[in-house]
């Protein structure tokens, strides 16, 4: 039993660290967007070229979004309509279970096809139509990874709910504008 608990604890810590690390990379991608756009403007003002800048900003945008999905979930940032859940009162567990089952299935579906997209981009040798001419599978990898991480995070929450009766989603109060 003790061995098992320790194993679970290590897994818990590992997963949380992966979610957090992905969100830090996502934040860096956001900074990357800012840098790309500033350099693009400078290119215009000072007459040098930065081929494919718009495409790079777009890839960073996709990476910034998808890599942050999982940590945003556990921080309670993804929104939902909570009326029915509140109305369930002490039977809320069953509502949460239903939501997590559906969300795990949907995010799993998304992850599966995101990986397939990368595979087919690689297989078809699909490359960007912009001046960057980047092989698309490379820039689609962060998206697929983020989608998989979101699916893992939902499954993780589902298992936590089943084992402990509570998921790992903790709303960060600092995000709430009315939390005076």
């Amino acid at each position: 039993m003790v061995e098992q608990d320790r194993g679970a604890g290590i897994l818990r810590g590992l997963l949380d660290r992966i979610y957090a690390a992905a969100s830090v990379v996502a934040a860096l991608c956001l900074v990357g967007i800012l840098i790309v756009i500033v350099v693009q403007m400078c290119a215009r003002w000072f007459s040098f070229t930065f081929p494919g800048s718009a495409e790079y900003a777009g890839y960073l945008m996709a990476a910034a979004s998808f890599l942050a999905f999982a940590s945003a979930l556990n921080a309670g940032s993804h929104i939902r309509v909570g009326l029915a859940l509140t109305a369930l009162g002490r039977h809320r567990f069953w509502g949460e279970l239903w939501c997590l089952v559906i969300a795990s299935a949907a995010s799993g579906y998304l992850a599966w096809y995101a990986v397939r997209l990368v595979y087919w981009s690689w297989k078809l040798k699909d490359i960007s139509q912009g001046q960057d001419a980047t092989p698309l599978w490379i820039v689609q990898v962060p998206m697929a990874f983020g989608a998989c991480l979101l699916a893992v995070a939902f499954a993780d929450n589902l298992i936590a709910l089943l084992l402990t009766g509570r998921d790992n989603i903790r709303e960060e109060l600092a995000d709430q504008s009315h939390a005076e």
Partner: peptide
């Protein structure tokens, strides 16, 4: 480039 224009994307 050939015409010496400033390319803007």
């Amino acid at each position: 480039e050939l015409a010496g224009m400033v390319p803007v994307q």
